[in-house]
C-alpha cells in the first residue's frame, strides 16, 4: 500500500504482460480445465468465467500458472476464482486476462492475482497511482494487508 510503496514491475517479454512475481514464468501455454485433467503433465491451466475453480483444488500441486479470463470487465466471477485458489493454498501464478481495466487491478491484486495480460495495454503511470491510492483496507483478503480493525487494536496482535 502507500506506506510500503508499490512499484510497477518491468514489462516482461510479452507485450501487455505485467508480472508481480520474482520466479520465472511457466513456459507452456495454458490449456482448458477439461484438457488439463486429460493431460497429466500440463502445468498451465485456463479458467473461463463460468468454470468451477474448486475442481482444480485436488490438482494444485502440479499447477504453475492459472489464467483467469475476464470476458468483460463487468463480469466479476474471476475475483472469486482467485480467492478460492489462494484460500486452498495455491501459491503459483494467477494471471488475469481479457477485459482487465486499470481501475480493477488494485482489487485483483488483493484477491491474489499476481500477473496481468489485458487485451488493451495499461498506462503504467495510471496503474501506479491506482495501486498506491488507498492507504488502508477494511477487510482481510488474499494479500497480507492488515485491516483497519486490526490496526485499531494492536493489543490483540500479541494476544
Amino acid at each position: 500500500m502507500a506506506e510500503s510503496g508499490n512499484p510497477i514491475p518491468q514489462a516482461a517479454s510479452e507485450a501487455n504482460y505485467l508480472r508481480f512475481r520474482e520466479d520465472s514464468p511457466a513456459d507452456e501455454p495454458a490449456v482448458s480445465l477439461d484438457s488439463f485433467f486429460e493431460q497429466p503433465n500440463a502445468v498451465s491451466v485456463r479458467i473461463e468465467a463460468g468454470d468451477d475453480p474448486q475442481r482444480l483444488i485436488p490438482h494444485l500441486s502440479r499447477v504453475k500458472l492459472v489464467e483467469v479470463d475476464f470476458p468483460k470487465f463487468r463480469d466479476g466471477r474471476g475475483f472469486s476464482t482467485a480467492r478460492i485458489l489462494r484460500e486452498a493454498g495455491y501459491t503459483g501464478e494467477i494471471k488475469a486476462t481479457g477485459d482487465v481495466l486499470v481501475d480493477l487491478v488494485y482489487f485483483m491484486r488483493r484477491c491474489g492475482f499476481d500477473s496481468f495480460a489485458p487485451d488493451v495495454a495499461i498506462d503504467p503511470a495510471v496503474l501506479e497511482a491506482c495501486l498506491n491510492r488507498y492507504p488502508h483496507v477494511y477487510q482481510h483478503a488474499a494479500d497480507d494487508a492488515v485491516p483497519i480493525w486490526q490496526l485499531r487494536h494492536p493489543e490483540l496482535a500479541n494476544g
Binding site: F79, S80, L104, V137
Partner: peptide
Amino acid sequence: MTTFMPEFSY
C-alpha cells in the same frame, strides 16, 4: 467491512 470489498468488485 463492505466498503471496497475486493472479491465483490463487480
